[in-house]
Simulated assay, not measured.
Amino acid sequence: MIEAPRVGTAPYLRNTAGSPLAGSPLAFSHRGFAPNGGENTLKAFNAAVELGFGYLETDVHASRDGVLMVFHDEDLRRLTGETRKVSDCTAAELARLRVAGEPIPTFDQLLEAFGHAHFNVDVKDPASAALLARAIDRHGAADRVLVASFNGRRRAAVQRMLAAAGAPVAASPGVLGVGAAALLGSLAPLPRSWFRNVAALQVPERHGAIRVVGPNLIRHAHAAGLQVHVWVVNEEADMHRLLDLGVDGIMSDNADVLARVMAVRGIWPQDRPAG
Rank of each mutant, 00 (worst) to 15 (best):
F195H: 02
V175T: 15
P191W: 12
V158W: 02
A167M: 14
W194M: 12
A188Y: 15
P168D: 08
L146Y: 02
A182F: 13
M161V: 02
A180V: 10
G174A: 11
P191G: 14
L184V: 13
R192C: 10
Q159H: 09
A165P: 03
G179L: 03
V147N: 00
A156F: 00
P189D: 15
R192W: 14
P168T: 11
L146D: 11
R154C: 02
V145Y: 07
A156P: 06
L176G: 08
R196Y: 03
G185F: 05
A156Y: 12
S193G: 04
L162D: 00
R196M: 02
V178L: 13
P191S: 13
S186F: 06
W194D: 05
A181H: 00
L162K: 00
A180Q: 04
V145E: 08
W194K: 05
A170P: 06
L176I: 15
R192A: 14
N197P: 08
R155W: 02
A157Y: 01
G174S: 14
F150Q: 05
A167Q: 15
G179M: 00
W194L: 15
G179F: 03
A163I: 01
V147K: 01
M161W: 02
G179Q: 03
R160S: 11
V145L: 10
V147E: 01
A199Q: 03
V178A: 10
A182W: 00
L187F: 12
L146K: 03
L183G: 05
F195G: 07
S172A: 15
V145D: 11
A156V: 10
R154H: 07
A181Y: 03
G185A: 08
S186P: 06
A182V: 12
Q159S: 13
